[in-house]
Each structure stands twice: as C-alpha cells, then as structure tokens.
Amino acid sequence: MPSTPSARATGGDRKTDASDALHVAQVALFRHDLRPVVPDDQTTILRLLTERPDDLVHERTRVLYRLHAVLRDLLPDGAPTGLSADKAAALMKGIRPVTATDNRRRDIARAVLADLCRLDRQVKDNEAEMRKAVAAARTTLTTLPSPGTVLAAKVLGHVGDVTRFPTEHHLASYTGSAPVDASSGDNVRHRLNTGGKRALNSVLHTIAICQIRDDGRGQAHYLRKISEGRTPSEARWALKRRLSNVVYRIMKRDQRNHLARAA
C-alpha cells in the first residue's frame, strides 16, 4: 500500500505554496472556532497610516545625511549637527560659489533640500490624516494618560476588532506584555517576553515610560512594584501588563457604545 505524505513531510516531498494552502484548508475543515474573513475597515486605514511614517522618517534621515555631506564641502566651517530644512536654507543663502565644482555642489544641495522639504510636508500631511482617522474611529483611547493620537492610532490599527480576543489575557499574550515566569524555588522572577506583536509592545513600552516619569496611577503602580522588591525592569513589565488590560477594557467599552449608537 503506497504511503501518504504527511502534512510536514521532509526529504523528497518538498513544501510548496499549493501544498501549504491545501494543509491550511484541511485544518480549517475541522476547526469551528476560526474567525471568518471580513472586509478591511477603519482599523486597516489606521494601520496603514501608522506604518507610513516609518518609511518617510527613514527616507528623510537618508536625505538629511546627504544634504549634510554636500553642505560640509560648501561651507568653510562645515555643516552643523541638528540640521533641518529651515537651517539648511538659511546656510545656503550665504554660499557664494567660486568654482564650477562648487556651483554644481550648490545645485545638488538645492535639489536635496527640495527633497527634504517634500518629505517634511508628507510627514505633516500623514499626521493630519491620522488625526482625522482617529477622530472617525470615535475612540476614547486618547483619554488614557500619555498615548496621544499616533499611539492610539497604532493600537487601533494593529489590534483591529477587539472581540477577536476573548479576554484581556489573550490581548496581553498578543502584545507580548505578559512577562514570562522565570521563577526558581522560592525565588520568584520574571523575564522579558520577546514574543507577541512588537509594534503593539513598543506602544505599551512608550506609554509606560511616559507614565513612570509623570505623576499618576501609572507611576504609583510602578513604585508599588519597586517597593515589593521588583527590579525596575520587572516593575516596568508589570505596568505594561496593566496598560494592556486597560487598553482592552477601553476598546471593549468603545465597541459597546458604538453598537448602542447604531441600534
């Protein structure tokens, strides 16, 4: 009787996209707890808007380095650090090229400066669109101390439909904010969770750092963990875990309010 290749066959039965798709379909036939595919919604728009600045900032940094290098060859004292489009434009007004080479350098500097100004405008335009999208989502995440519009947009964009997480513990696992137990005997310790959605983990980390710095419940929670014998890192992880729970409750409440208004 011929053998049947398994779903995780190795050797001669190489994996292909077609076989992967078949195995996924076979698993789906016997799983009734999978979420159905739904059309993209406002949260998808928010995720796209929050991902766009990363590309713009990386490109802006590259252009800024290029502009700094060109101005360094044009200015007797070189170009200062902390260069911006306005500072570069002011410096270029005083440049008086003598040679044909310096004339070409100035032309290149002008072109690179135009690229920098364009990228600055795109960053601002993207921020304006993000604010509009967050307002359209009618979220109350922005009332949480320290998140701001950009961080709220990242949470909404990457979490999506919060009902796909049955409990706050599931969301904490998804964000990687639940510390991993590393206890040994009577020595209770936890280590950093390196799993989960890193974009969301980064948002929670930023909010935690801001709340630790400022007076409020976040700082009080952090200091309480320190007084209990936790290390600063462990106290910060505990605050991130608490923030994940708060985010979950806020998003669930917002969803109930949306459904009530739609009814």
Rank of each mutant, 00 (worst) to 15 (best):
S3T: 09
T4Y: 12
S6H: 06
S6I: 01
T10P: 00
K15N: 09
K15R: 15
T16R: 13
D17A: 12
D17G: 13
A18Y: 05
S19H: 03
D20G: 07
A21N: 12
H23Y: 11
V24A: 15
A25K: 15
A25Q: 14
A25E: 14
L29E: 14
L29M: 15
L29P: 01
R31Q: 14
D33V: 08
D33A: 08
L34E: 05
P36I: 01
V37A: 15
V37W: 13
V38Q: 15
Q42E: 14
T44G: 13
L49D: 01
P53S: 04
P53G: 02
D54H: 13
D55L: 04
V57T: 15
H58I: 00
E59L: 07
T61F: 08
R66T: 07
L67T: 10
L67C: 05
H68L: 03
H68R: 15
L74M: 11
L74I: 04
L75T: 11
D77T: 12
D77P: 02
D77S: 14
A79L: 04
G82E: 09
G82Y: 12
K87M: 08
A88L: 06
A89G: 01
A89K: 14
A90P: 00
K93T: 14
I95G: 03
D102F: 08
N103C: 11
R106I: 00
R106F: 01
I108D: 14
A109M: 06
L113V: 09
L113K: 10
D115A: 03
C117N: 14
L119P: 00
D120V: 03
D120I: 05
R121M: 03
N126I: 05
M130K: 15
M130S: 12
K132L: 08
A133C: 06
R138A: 09
T139G: 07
T139K: 09
T140C: 01
T140N: 10
T142A: 04
T143L: 09
P145A: 05
P145L: 05
S146N: 12
G148Q: 07
V150L: 11
L151P: 05
A153P: 02
L156W: 04
G160A: 08
G160I: 07
R164Q: 12
F165G: 07
P166R: 15
T167P: 04
T167Q: 04
H169P: 00
A172C: 04
S173V: 10
Y174I: 02
G176L: 05
G176Y: 08
S177N: 10
A178G: 01
P179S: 08
A182I: 02
S183V: 08
N187V: 12
V188K: 15
R189K: 14
R191W: 03
R198Y: 06
S202C: 00
T206V: 02
I207M: 10
A208W: 02
D214H: 11
Q219Y: 05
H221I: 11
Y222E: 01
I226D: 03
I226P: 02
S227N: 13
E228R: 10
E228V: 00
G229R: 08
G229A: 06
R230F: 15
T231G: 08
E234Q: 15
A235H: 09
W237P: 00
L239E: 00
L239A: 02
R241N: 15
R242N: 11
L243M: 03
S244Y: 03
V246F: 02
I250D: 03
M251I: 07
D254C: 06
Q255F: 06
Q255D: 08
L259C: 03
A260F: 07
A260R: 14
R261C: 01
A262W: 02
